[in-house]
Structures are given as C-alpha cells and as structure tokens.
Amino acid sequence: MTSEAMIRELLESNSSLSTAEITSKLGLSRSATQYALNKLLNANEVERTAPLRSPKQRYRKVTH
C-alpha cells in the first residue's frame, strides 16, 4: 500500500489529523508523510484546515 493510500484510509476514520499524528500512526518519516500529503493536496483529495504556515495545521479528507 502506498503512503498516499495509507493516509487516505487514515483520514477516512479521523475528522482531521496533523502531520505529526499521521507520522506517528503510520510509522512514516516526516518527509515521506509531507511528500504524500502534498501529492494528495495537489490531487484535491485532502485539504488544509488552517493557513499554510500555521502551527495548528491539520489535514482532512475532501468531501465532494
């Protein structure tokens, strides 16, 4: 399973998560997590819940 698929699945069962929470739950490195999140953001599959540089940054699945 790819990192993107694991994050997608994790966000299905959580309303929103921070990068640190995703990293911890999946056992991925921070850079791998961020890379996968960026791919999902670019594909409009997840969205940020706070401004880009916010220390309270979280991610959630986009609902169509």
Rank of each mutant, 00 (worst) to 15 (best):
S13K: 15
E9S: 10
H64N: 12
E47H: 07
S18I: 05
N38H: 14
T49C: 04
L11D: 07
T33Q: 08
V62I: 15
K25S: 14
S13N: 12
E45T: 15
T33G: 09
R53M: 03
Y59G: 02
L40C: 09
E4Y: 09
N42D: 13
K25W: 04
V62S: 07
T2F: 09
E4F: 06
E47Q: 13
Q57P: 00
R58I: 02
S29L: 06
R30H: 10
Y59H: 01
R48A: 04
L40I: 11
E12T: 07
Y59E: 00
R8C: 13
S24A: 10
T63I: 14
R48D: 00
L40D: 07
A43G: 11
T33P: 04
T33S: 11
E9W: 04
S24W: 05
S24C: 05
Y35M: 12
A5G: 10
K56L: 12
R58W: 00
N44K: 14
N14R: 11
A50F: 09
S15G: 03
S24I: 02
Q34P: 01
T63S: 12
R48N: 02
N42R: 14
S3Y: 11
E47F: 07
A36W: 08
R60D: 01
T2R: 10
E45I: 15
V62P: 05
N14H: 14
K39E: 13
A32R: 03
Q57A: 08
A32G: 01
I22C: 02
S15L: 12
Q57K: 08
Q57E: 04
V46F: 08
K61F: 02
L11W: 05
E4D: 13
M6G: 06
L41K: 13
N38G: 07
R48L: 02
L26E: 05
R8G: 05
P51M: 08
I7Q: 05
Y59K: 00
S31L: 08
K56V: 02
S29A: 07
L10W: 02
S16K: 09
Q57F: 01
A5V: 14
A32F: 03
L17C: 06
G27A: 10
R60H: 01
N14M: 04
L11H: 05
L52R: 07
M1V: 14
E47K: 13
K25C: 05
H64D: 13
A5D: 15
L37N: 15
K39W: 06
S3Q: 14
A5P: 04
S3K: 13
L10V: 01
S18R: 07
T63H: 08
S18Y: 06
K61H: 01
A20W: 02
R48P: 00
R53Y: 00
T19H: 04
S16N: 07
L41P: 06
L37D: 12
S54T: 03
L26Y: 05
M1F: 09
K25N: 10
S16L: 04
E4A: 15
E45A: 15
K61N: 03
V46G: 05
L26T: 10
E12P: 00
T63K: 13
E21Q: 09
